[in-house]
Design a protein around this nucleic acid. Sequence first.
DNA 1: GTCGGCCGTGATACCGTTACCATCAACAAT
DNA 2: ATTGTTGATGGTAACGGTATCACGGCCGAC
Lengths: 327, 327
Amino acid sequence: MREIALSVGVAPITVSRALKKPSSVSPETRRRILQAIEEVGFIPNQLASSMRGAGRIIGTVVPPLINSGIAEQVQGMSDECRERGYQLLLMQGDFSPEAEDEAIRALLGWRPAGLILQAFVQGPVAREMLRETGVPVVEISEIRGNEPIDMAVGVSNFDAAHAMTAHLAAKGYRCIGFVSTPIHGNDRLRQRRIGYRQAMADLGLSPVPELEVEVDITPQGGAEALRILTARNPRLDVIFCSSDTLAIGAVQECHRLGWKVPGRLAIAGYGDVDLAAQLHPTLTTVRVRRYDMGRRAVRQLLRRLEGDAPTQAIVAVGFEIIERESA
Amino acid sequence: MREIALSVGVAPITVSRALKKPSSVSPETRRRILQAIEEVGFIPNQLASSMRGAGRIIGTVVPPLINSGIAEQVQGMSDECRERGYQLLLMQGDFSPEAEDEAIRALLGWRPAGLILQAFVQGPVAREMLRETGVPVVEISEIRGNEPIDMAVGVSNFDAAHAMTAHLAAKGYRCIGFVSTPIHGNDRLRQRRIGYRQAMADLGLSPVPELEVEVDITPQGGAEALRILTARNPRLDVIFCSSDTLAIGAVQECHRLGWKVPGRLAIAGYGDVDLAAQLHPTLTTVRVRRYDMGRRAVRQLLRRLEGDAPTQAIVAVGFEIIERESA
DNA sequence: GTCGGCCGTGATACCGTTACCATCAACAAT
DNA sequence: ATTGTTGATGGTAACGGTATCACGGCCGAC
């Protein structure tokens, strides 16, 4: 930058202004500066810029990208960040609360303008760190069952699971199984199970542990869940999988067993992945607009950072029950 | 940091040393410094650190995470980065060369220690920028068909597609269709098609345009490809999809049409996603260890950055033909 | 006893940018 | 003619670390 300034014959600060507030530099000077930048191939150092002025990094801790719709969410965040001139700093999490603390600490080291974390942040250590530093935080995915640290964007997984369970009951199913991936420490999954149980209770179908099972988040897990639940409950009507990945595994297992879906057993999923509409039979599931969720989370942060308007703390993105052939 | 130094009664630089080179500070001093850091909840500013010393950011430009195994690759990079104390800065790309240039320029602004880009970087502008700045670059995914800017980690998509085509021919199939997602500007896909064509030629089965089609990278695309190819070529034996997503869509379409797989038509994929082994029938496909690829790309960069050993420029991760029921 | 080297520590400068305040010319208002 | 206002530009300091060199004390070698 000094180099540019010298070659044009102005002070470094003028170069800075030409880039950040073009209106505050005379058109002629600006033109010459931009030309020099072009020629030299100068790329401003964002580190220095962030250290002095406002940082343009948004940090996020995400569960493994491989499964589920997390990739879509990240895509949404990333797209919105790019359009607004921010950078996304990615960390893996969803392990122990300690690992989460560590990931958040690492992100804070970069003095991000804001953080997007999976709802809800578990550890008291992390919550304390975040409160102390005062970084804007959006907790994403879930909006029910806990107080957000700062802001929240997501759906009520409770409502969604409740609605699907009620939908299945309305279709005449009575013995409704529930398959989940490991719930420990994951509020979204917990809310789905609570929603299922509440719906069962509301319908006068007492929720019993025999109807619930936890398996790995793989198609194999779904197949395994199907075997376990049908062995335990011969009268099982339908299984509601808390993730499409599981549901797809279960459908394939039915093919293997030669069972008609939904004739012998109905199956419902959660997430509405691409494949859900292509499966044979097509999959009844819950659609959540995760891509939008990602985008909105970033927007929510930026509104706080750039806007002055009072911001509502919680944004619900809604969900839909997608009724197809499988249930 | 100044604060910590004051409270312990040492110079700031000693605090810095206690964190970066613990051996160069006396045990007693170190203990007191670490304790003070703990108490105050101090988190070192990575921006400042990176500006002066060596940065600990690794930048990457990735295609949309939603499809394919890119998510796995990112997972691999992310895991390796975390273990080595680096941060992953993520940008979306895979659009026009101009967009790629822009993404790379944005990353360079953060003065990353290294970049991981999808092979091979298209634009001459980007190649020039990278050469000028001299950042270590790993081009990931493909290792054939072009000269890497610096280093490359990946498979030969040519060899993999060639091997699968040969495998299909060895199984007795003669009229082998090839389905791809849009190839324009994507070397990996191009190499797969070239590998297919070369194998056809090697086998004495002349490759003809009627046997090839390009569709969107969705299961719907796979279904569409199947309809197009069978309409064009009534004697079609098998279709080789350059992505499992397409293959899965094609299999589902066969179910819809009531066609036996592989009785009426065989189907092969590329990628070996989780679901491939669960599908009905299970999917014959090419396995590429993308997670490993991500990890190795980072390792390759760090070897250059930290190690002094001469590094081989190209790392092949290999592939396997996974023979299952569908072909 | 003197010297050279090592160890723990500190003073200083610097990385590249921008916030803050100062400067100066030109022009309008009084 | 004097003062006030606006617009363009610059000087300086500061963000928070660390590279570099310097310093004093302690030790073993001769």
